[in-house]
Simulated scan of single mutants.
Amino acid sequence: MIKFFRKIRKQLLAEGKFGNYLLYAIGEIILVVIGILIALAINNSNENRIKREKEQVYLAGLQEEFETSKIKLEELIKVNRQSYEAAKTMVSFSYNEISLSEEELSNLFIDAFAYDIFFNPNNSMLTEMINSGSLKDISNDTLRFRLTNWIATIDDIEKQEKLLSDQRNNVINMFKAESYSIRTVLDQTGMSAELGLPKEKNPMSNMDALNSKSFENSILLFIITSLATETAHYTPLMHSLDAILELLDGEIRE
């Protein structure tokens, strides 16, 4: 097409038709510009398509990660609740005359203090996106904002879990004293057999712990911290996780 215009321009120039020559020259320029614009549009369209396909891969990976993290958080909330409920039951025997057996006390002790509470979300995809700068490829502004805040929220959760772990250890450390016996707890709960240890021939009772104000105070602090971990941290975190999953579901193409 350009050669055609060029041939006509030469002919017009040779015939001295300068007005027509100028018109055709302008037409040739317009044709070139249109061609460039079409090429740019096609290129931009291809780049946007590749970007959207890349985004869909990220979204699918994030959805899988957050669904797994939700299962972990649900289980963690359950374990934490069982832990502080066992501790509450243990403390309640300090305020009434209902008898509690050595075995029951030992089982409550294990249920309350044997398990560390730490949330370990699946963040490999999100971390990779942040480190590579690919988070900008998420077109939904609200989703991108929530994903950015997720890491900071997890850091706050870790601090609270560290505080809870310290309170748990405070209670456990009391049983390291001469007047209490962790071995009795293991024997009464059957954990000694699991560890391949023989039962103590002359077991020491831990029942006096229920009359210890220091022991009671430590348990109460543990209960308070456990409740705060659930209500002020895990519950809002679950709401945030559900919101992210809802946004991801809305952005993923079937």
Score class of each variant (00 low, 15 high):
Gly27Cys: 02
Phe215Ser: 01
Tyr180Phe: 15
Tyr95Gly: 07
Ser83Gly: 06
Thr127Tyr: 04
Lys88Trp: 01
Val185Thr: 11
Ser165Gly: 14
Thr225Lys: 10
Asn20Phe: 04
Glu102Trp: 02
Thr189His: 07
Ser179Ala: 11
Asp187Ser: 05
Glu28Trp: 02
Ile42Ser: 05
Lys136Cys: 01
Ser139Leu: 12
Ala114Leu: 11
Ile29Ser: 01
Asn173Ser: 12
Arg168Tyr: 13
Arg183Asp: 15
Leu247Pro: 08
Glu178Ser: 13
Leu186Arg: 11
Tyr115Thr: 15
Asp111Ser: 15
Glu246Ala: 15
Tyr234Pro: 05
Asn131Pro: 02
Glu246Cys: 08
Arg144Tyr: 04
Met125Cys: 10
Ala39Met: 01
Ser139Tyr: 14
Leu237Asn: 09
Asp249Leu: 11
Glu15Leu: 04
Tyr95Glu: 11
Val171Phe: 11
Glu200Asn: 13
Tyr95Phe: 14
Glu251Cys: 11
Tyr115Pro: 00
Met207Ile: 14
Arg146Ala: 05
Glu251Thr: 10
Asn122Tyr: 13
Asp116Tyr: 13
Val171His: 09
Phe145Met: 14
Thr225Gln: 13
Val33Gly: 01
Leu59Lys: 05
Gln56Ser: 07
Glu254Leu: 15
Lys51Ile: 01
Glu230Ser: 07
Leu76Ile: 09
Asn169Ser: 15
Thr184Ala: 14
Leu37Asp: 00
Asp155Glu: 15
Asp166Trp: 07
Phe18Gln: 04
Ala177Ile: 06
Lys78Met: 06
Leu143Cys: 06
Pro203Leu: 03
Ile34Cys: 04
Lys162Tyr: 13
Val171Gly: 10
Ile172Gln: 10
Ser205Glu: 02
Glu75Met: 08
Ser240Asn: 15
Glu216Asn: 14
Ser124Lys: 12
Glu104Arg: 10
Gln11Pro: 00
Glu216Met: 11
Ser214Trp: 07
Ile71Val: 14
Leu147Cys: 05
Leu186His: 08
Gly250Tyr: 05
Glu103His: 07
Lys159Phe: 08
Tyr24Lys: 05
Asp111Gly: 07
Ile223Thr: 07
Lys3Val: 04
Ser106Asn: 08
Asp111Ala: 15
Leu135Met: 05
Leu241Ile: 09
Gln160Thr: 09
Lys199Trp: 06
Thr229Leu: 13
Ala14Met: 07
Phe222Leu: 03
Glu200Met: 12
Leu23Met: 03
Pro236Ala: 02
Glu246Arg: 13
Asn169Gln: 15
Phe4Arg: 10
Pro236His: 03
Leu108Asn: 13
Ser92Met: 04
Leu210Glu: 02
Ser45Arg: 06
Asp242Ala: 04
Val91Thr: 07
Ile182Gly: 09
Asn120Thr: 12
Leu13Ile: 01
Lys162Glu: 14
Ala114Gln: 11
Ser99Pro: 02
Met238Ala: 12
Phe109Asp: 10
Ile110Tyr: 12
Thr89Trp: 06
Leu210Ser: 04
Lys78Leu: 11
Thr225Arg: 06
Thr142Phe: 06
Asn170Ile: 08
Leu135Thr: 05
Ser181Trp: 09
Ile98Thr: 14
Phe93Asn: 05
Glu65Pro: 01
Gln167His: 14
